[in-house]
């Protein structure tokens, strides 16, 4: 039996966009935002596909029905080489990790994975990260901040990273949950034509999951944009004028010859 890898993914606000808050200022206003696949989930998917390339593992990508633009993310994953994609309903569209973990855990209880690979974090995590919460719900061992996963039979060998460039090589028995920091190579590219092909073929499987019990939730008092203690003095002009100003700054501090 090939190893069954499940990759839960999340759509997150594109950070390039201006972020607005809701009128009561306890959440961000998602209505007009553009959403993209969580960048760490893209890394987890790539790592899953690398394991598939090496061992013939089955890769199933799962998203939540209520996530904005989730179809696009799931079809893109299929175009990249995932074997199938599942859209889970049953959650209430909560963006809290604790709620999402309960829904994914509900799905994984019904259709278990040998290995769950997902992003170590998401930009809009507030109450914690998905991999450890999911593992706690499922009673599975888990490791986060992982770069590189190698499957060997009933275990995986992984590298867990620490500050300063140190890392640990661990062997973890399957089933397990791994929070991926970075894949061994940059996420592969899916040509638009293949994404379109996947969309035309359809085939997103919709599954209704009964969520497990949600953990205690956090009370948000308010959200606000940070007030900067200062702001950079902006250097204006064309490239050559700005270059001259930077050169002067360096020269003034004796950091440039001449």
């Amino acid at each position: 039996m090939p190893v069954r890898i499940v990759v839960p993914v999340k759509a997150v606000p594109d950070l390039v966009e201006e972020i607005e808050l809701t009128p009561d200022e306890t959440d961000i206003d998602r209505e007009f935002l553009k959403f993209v696949l969580n960048e760490w989930d893209a890394q987890a998917l790539e790592e899953a596909l690398l394991v598939k390339d090496a061992t013939g593992a089955e890769v199933v990508v799962v998203g939540l029905h209520e996530d904005p633009d989730i179809d696009q993310a799931l079809y893109t994953a299929i175009a990249k080489g995932a074997d199938s994609a599942v859209k889970i309903s049953g959650g209430e569209g909560s963006t809290r990790t604790s709620d999402r973990a309960a829904v994914f855990a509900g799905y994984l209880s019904a259709e278990p994975a040998d290995l769950v690979l997902t992003g170590v974090q998401a930009a809009d995590d507030l109450d914690g990260q998905l991999p450890p919460m999911l593992a706690a719900h499922l009673g599975l061992p888990h490791v986060s901040v992982v770069v590189g996963v190698q499957a060997n039979g009933n275990a995986v060998t992984i590298r867990q990273e620490f500050a300063g460039g140190r890392s640990h090589e661990l062997e973890v028995s399957l089933p397990a949950v791994v929070g991926v920091q970075a894949a061994r190579q940059a996420p592969r590219y899916a040509p638009i034509s293949r994404i379109r092909q996947a969309m035309q073929a359809g085939g997103l499987r919709e599954v209704d999951a009964s969520p497990g019990t949600t953990g205690p939730s956090l009370t948000v008092r308010r959200m606000y944009r940070p007030e900067a203690a200062g702001h950079a003095e902006m250097l204006t002009g064309n490239a050559d004028e700005v270059a001259a100003k930077i050169a002067d700054l360096l020269r003034g501090r004796g950091l440039m010859k001449g």
Binding site: M133, A136, V145, G179, G215
Partner: peptide, 8 residues
């Protein structure tokens, strides 16, 4: 990042 969310 390993333990916080699991303990939660």
């Amino acid at each position: 990042l390993d333990l916080g969310a699991a303990l939660s």
